[in-house]
Amino acid sequence: MAENDTVGDTGRRKFLIKVTAVAGGAGAAVACLPFISSMNPSADVLAKATTEFDLTGMNPGDMRTVAWQGKPVFILRRTPEQIAAMEASNGGLYPEPDQQRVKQPEWLVVVGVCTHMGCVPNKEGPGWTCHCHGSQYDDSGRVTRGPAPKNLEVPPYRFITADKIVIGEA
């Protein structure tokens, strides 16, 4: 071996190598960002971030499912009895007043994805039942039984007109 192992690195040498290693490493790390970013939703997917829904034609007690960002959103027109029952209770396992979960008491808008493992619950009797693992939700989307760790999510939405909502922007 021709290398003279006794030649030690002076402090200055070490410094230059360190600076270069840091600069190179930082550059390599930054170069990874476009690759990671390319896996995020593309502009055309982001453009579909909102969904408009026309509420006309829904009678009290009716439920519709609409796709928002590919996920089902339950829109339930609640009867006066349902509203009264929901406002009277504070929910089951994770208490939350009904008023905080609706914009207008007549209309419940929740993301129809079970907060446990992501199955879509079925409308059965009062509220919803998820058949994957048996969670149950009431007519305010609040957990009344089962492994679900959270109440059904309320998506951002607003009424554009009296009978039209846009889901995806508050």
């Binding site: 290398e3 003279n4 230059l16």
Partner: peptide
Amino acid sequence: LTALLFAVKNQIWSR
């Protein structure tokens, strides 16, 4: 970066 790499290379080879 290339200027730095050049300096590092020269330093190492100067040994």
